[in-house]
Amino acid sequence: MAAETGTPTTLTLKSNDDELFSVAESAAILSVTIRNMVEDGCAGGVIPLDNVDGKTLASVITYMNGISAIPADEEKKKSYRDKFLSDKDFETLADMVLAANYLNMSCLMDAVSAKIAQVMEKKSVGWVRRKFGIENDYTPEEEAAVKEEHKWTFEGVETDDDN
């Protein structure tokens, strides 16, 4: 391994747009992908992360540092996650969940998925189709039938599609 004993080990991560980041090994191994590399002894030089761009990786590292600084207190970790994700826009969340998936970080993955769901919850069906680029493959009759079947879920729902 790169560092001598006594000093905390630091890893260097490289994003797919060639930005370099240094991060404490203890924080970086929150990612099972990175942990496996460390355990296999392939983390000596620069660790290339081909599926994550610099901006997203910077965010993920902020998260790694933040969450690993919190002792085993699930309440505090949860409130850190909520705060961390509170200012992220919807597209950033997509980048984050893809990065978390690639890095195999289940806690971030769960938190971001839940956050995306929380944003979607208040949106209309049309917004979801537009945002995710999903084609409506129902015939008008079929769509009406599906909506009728779940009529109760449309009752009293106020959507906030404009933001």
Partner: peptide, 17 residues
């Protein structure tokens, strides 16, 4: 993501596709 939607929203979004 969809598994984390509230129940009512899950059913509402069955009409997406």
């Amino acid at each position: 993501v969809i598994a984390r939607l509230p129940i009512a929203a899950f059913f509402r979004f069955r009409s997406v596709c």
